[in-house]
Design a protein around this nucleic acid. Sequence first.
DNA 1: CCAATTTGGTTTCAAAATGAAACCACCCGG
DNA 2: CCGGGTGGTTTCATTTTGAAACCAAATTGG
Lengths: 156, 156
Amino acid sequence: MAKRKPQSRTECPVERSVDIIGDEWSLLLIRDAFDGLRRFGEFQKNLGVAKNILATRLRHLVAHGILEVVPASDGSAFHDYVLTPKGRDLFQVLVGLRQWGEHHCFQPNEARSVLVDTEQGRPVRAMEVRSESGRPLTSTDTVVKKVSEKKPRSKR
Amino acid sequence: MAKRKPQSRTECPVERSVDIIGDEWSLLLIRDAFDGLRRFGEFQKNLGVAKNILATRLRHLVAHGILEVVPASDGSAFHDYVLTPKGRDLFQVLVGLRQWGEHHCFQPNEARSVLVDTEQGRPVRAMEVRSESGRPLTSTDTVVKKVSEKKPRSKR
DNA sequence: CCAATTTGGTTTCAAAATGAAACCACCCGG
DNA sequence: CCGGGTGGTTTCATTTTGAAACCAAATTGG
């Protein structure tokens, strides 16, 4: 799981994210956590993943502060895995994957689950990337600016 | 690469997306394609990936309509790999990964690349999930609604 | 036009990751 | 205090990965 160059930390934020959560099981575990699954057995049953793999991935996500282990909500001596604030901040990533899948991975009339606003029960809007001034942007309107060093000290 | 249950197509759009692009190399290849890399050798040099793995992943992305093979832009007999419209629609996913990485995978003063609006040169806004009515939503404001079948026919 | 080099792969093989199954300790309910 | 459920770990066969060698077609230098 993400063993590439542990020495040279890349300056690309996409790559740092992908190194942590860029694998199938981690992403599906995070999806399930957003869906409210908490227990080892729930994840295992829902994903059909081998228990050793599941244990490895849960440890990985806990180690990276995406999930945390808390006392079970049912009062038993077991424990739950729940999203931390850092984990919940992956919401946009999961919504992005969902909306792309909705748009590109289904036949027009094929059944699919849909993310709705709890309050209104209506599907959420398509996410947009916007400039600082609020203008919607496509990928061709943007560019990655490399920052070699933090500004040593401002001259003024 | 995504060999899980090829028979039962899940109704979860997140899972369908993850089955296609939920691996480290695919996501990094897509990032590089957004950055304008086109040639086999460019990807290979930039990622440091083994050539057999790169060939497999490029074939996979082409097979799924995310990249396409086009005549080389330099007029040579080689060819380029470029994002299709379907591939460009992954922009929000990549921006989501980038913004999460920026926020959670760097020390405050650590050097990082940044995505800017080409026109203004200013960093893009944080992406937001919004309700149909425009209200910003967090994960706790939303729920996944399972849709078992397409509406057979409207009664009215 | 020919030789050398570059490009874009494929093949081969060892090492690593995955996954199924067996095993096991602890908790819980009766 | 017994039987089953929960949450793992261990073992081992299979699959995937990756490094390196190899190779054909295209390009470049002379």
